[in-house]
Simulated assay, not measured.
Amino acid sequence: MNILVCEDNLIQAQALTSHLQTFDYVQRVDVVTTGEEMISVVLEKNDITALFLDIDLPGMNGLEAYGILKMQGCDIPAILITGLRPAASDTYHLGIVDVVEKPYLTPRLEEALKKLRLHIEHQNFIQAGGVYVPVITDELALLSPKDILFFEAGARELKVHTLHNTFEAKYIPLKIYEKYLRNQGFVFSHRAYLVNTRKIKYIDHTDIHFIGDFQHVASVAEDKLSILKKILQRINMSPI
């Protein structure tokens, strides 16, 4: 989760950032101090997962800035961290996930983060067409198709690679995953690799590189290369 904090009080912003960075599912926390800056960063970076924003900001207030982002099609969930209690109707219509009043204690922040994660999971579920991918390790994990880069079948194991994790899956064969995810853009690039074509960045000879991932590559067999390139061209991507 990449979080953008919009708070003009730098001491409070640093305290909130320190709190958020203690959670292992938070990858990055950035800080801005004005609503205008928040709009600019969200539109430029295009990888912000959630917003934590104050209302009382210099110039444009937090709710106004968030409303502008909404009008521009940015459906990023937000938590209000504020000393001003806004009208419930204002936050409801904007889609604010939770309102945390200052001063707050750690349990209250954890409660807001739990709501935020559930909201994001629900968004991912809807965006994926109501599909979750079951991955059985020592426990059952339910992944959104858009979070999976590729499946890799070994002699005795099946690995599921996401942007931030690799799961060693059990019991479900690769062919079953292929049938289940065929309509989600997954294709065999090799008999041992099932790749998410919507996450491919480029193909270098026989290696497939993925958007946002610099560590893992999948293989493409010669007899699959031309088919894969046609698929990428169809979704307006450069295959090379």
Rank of each mutant, 00 (worst) to 15 (best):
M1R: 03
E7S: 07
D8P: 12
L16A: 11
T17P: 03
H19G: 02
Q21C: 14
F23I: 10
D30P: 04
V31Y: 00
E36T: 12
M38C: 07
I39V: 08
V41R: 12
K45F: 06
T49W: 09
A50E: 03
D56Q: 12
L57Y: 01
G59L: 03
G59I: 10
L63R: 01
G67L: 05
K70T: 09
K70W: 03
I76C: 03
P77G: 05
T82L: 04
P86E: 01
V97W: 03
D98M: 02
E101H: 12
Y104N: 08
Y104A: 05
K114V: 04
E121P: 00
Q123D: 06
F125W: 11
I126G: 00
Q127P: 00
T137H: 04
S144I: 01
S144C: 09
I148A: 06
I148S: 00
E157R: 13
L158G: 00
H161K: 07
H164S: 10
T166I: 15
A169Q: 09
A169G: 12
K175H: 09
N183M: 06
G185M: 08
R191E: 15
Y193H: 15
I203G: 05
T206Y: 15
T206C: 14
D207P: 02
H209C: 15
I211A: 12
I211N: 02
G212T: 06
S219W: 02
E222L: 15
K224S: 13
L225Y: 14
I227G: 10
I231L: 14
L232G: 04
I235T: 04
N236F: 13
M237F: 02
S238F: 13
